[in-house]
Amino acid sequence: MTNVNTYQTDAESSSSRPPSMADVAAVAGVSHQTVSRVLNDHPNVREGTRVRVLEAIKELGYRRNLAARALATAQTRTIGILTIGSEFFGPQSTVLAVEAAARAQGYFVTVTSMDSYDIGAAVTALNHLTDQSVDGVVVVAPHDQVTEAIDELKLKVPVVVVAARTNVPENDPVHYVYVDQRDGARQATEHLISLGHQKIVHVSGPTGWSDATERKIGWGETMAAAGYDAVEFPAESWLAPSGYDAGVSLAPRVKAGEITAVFASNDYLAIGLLRAFWEAGVSVPEDVSVVGFDDLQIAEFYIPKLTTVRQPFGDVGRAALAELLNDDPASSGPRMIAPTMIVRASTAPPARS
């Protein structure tokens, strides 16, 4: 091997450019093609040669030109993520999990957020990602308008959608990964029924969201199977103020004995309920039990600690990336991940029937 220190001095005096693959080849005494083989882990390289090349890379401080590699291989090692507003805990937790999993696999991530929930906004955002020549797209926006946009566009790259969609078209190349929302709602409702509750109201999520639809179905089916009336109170949004408004309306019915338990479609709605009930002098869980969905980090620090359904967002993110990288056209059906019931202090047997 030539003298690396002398080479670096000469190079520094003549140019401030970063070291290239040709520089590595010159220092290691090999061809440009051999350096490329070492960088790409090609098996047909002698171990001694591989060591010399790696030493030259280390001593020169050489870093691969990923842009040039992308041009040569038609791959950017970049994954696009389409998501929705940052105020939504579930999608943002999933995005972070996908990003971490992608980074561990050596991929870069570019994220685009939608500013509204309609087909036009979804099409614009998806086109923005594909214009960046991403190798694949993970969609973390469980809204019906987004899935309709994906059906229309027929993207040329692999696509994985994190959404509880049950009406997937036959032979659809898009892969779906999600927590079994219907089963989570069933677990929540069965928990309340097991405590002796029959008058269970569901504060449902906003229309157009697949997760809200699936949770509503799971709750309704479980109530019907038990022979109880299913009474729904639709919320206008996923956020705590909508839960608070629902609580203000429901508090008089709790006091009248018409309701003994509430299953909220997410933890933010449940937290809004807790506030409204407290202001109205309704005690949780003595007067009414409350169950949420998601298991926010703050759920166990409220008074009372919130009973909820935990979604394993980290598992969802890793599964979405694995599905994207595998991109097996022969695979069929969604990949569902099981939720877990977390019982805390906000639920108890009803004080009166």
Rank of each mutant, 00 (worst) to 15 (best):
I259D: 00
K255V: 05
D267I: 03
S210D: 11
R165V: 15
V157F: 08
L192A: 07
T166W: 11
W278R: 12
L192W: 05
S242H: 03
A280D: 08
G196A: 14
W278L: 13
G208F: 06
P252R: 05
A264E: 01
E221A: 10
D229R: 12
A185I: 02
L273F: 09
D267M: 05
F263V: 05
R182F: 03
A225V: 14
K216P: 00
P158Y: 09
E232D: 10
V179T: 14
D267V: 06
S237G: 08
E214Y: 01
Y268N: 12
A225G: 10
E232S: 03
K154E: 14
L239R: 04
V254C: 02
P169I: 13
D172S: 13
A212N: 04
T260I: 12
S265Y: 00
P173M: 11
Y228M: 14
Y176W: 10
E190F: 09
D180F: 05
Y178A: 15
E190D: 11
V161H: 11
M223E: 01
D245S: 13
L239C: 03
A240E: 09
V201M: 08
V282L: 08
I217R: 14
I271E: 03
D183H: 15
E214V: 00
S237A: 14
L274T: 01
T166H: 13
R165K: 14
A276D: 02
R182E: 14
M223N: 01
T166D: 13
N266K: 06
A251M: 07
P234I: 04
V231A: 06
T260W: 10
R186G: 15
R182M: 13
P158T: 10
I271M: 13
V254F: 00
S249R: 14
A251Q: 01
K156I: 08
T166E: 13
V254I: 13
G184I: 02
V162D: 07
E221G: 15
E190K: 15
A224R: 15
K156R: 14
H175V: 11
D245F: 04
N171R: 12
N171V: 04
S249F: 09
P169N: 10
T189R: 02
L155T: 09
F263G: 00
E279D: 14
H202W: 07
A164F: 07
A188H: 01
T166C: 08
A240G: 09
T166Q: 12
V174S: 08
I217L: 15
V168D: 07
A270W: 06
V282M: 07
S265Q: 02
S204K: 02
D180K: 04
F263Y: 09
I217W: 10
R165H: 14
A225F: 12
Y244L: 06
V254R: 00
V282G: 03
S237Q: 12
V254T: 02
Q181Y: 08
E232T: 11
A224W: 04
L195Q: 10
V161Q: 10
L274C: 03
V179S: 10
V177Y: 00
V177T: 08
G257A: 07
A276H: 00
P158M: 10
V254Q: 00
S237D: 15
R215Y: 07
N171E: 13
K154P: 05
V161R: 03
V231K: 05
E190G: 04
E214A: 12
H197S: 04
H197T: 09
R182Y: 06
W209M: 07
G272T: 10
G243Y: 01
L155R: 08
Y268Q: 11
S242Q: 06
K199M: 04
Q198G: 15
A240R: 11
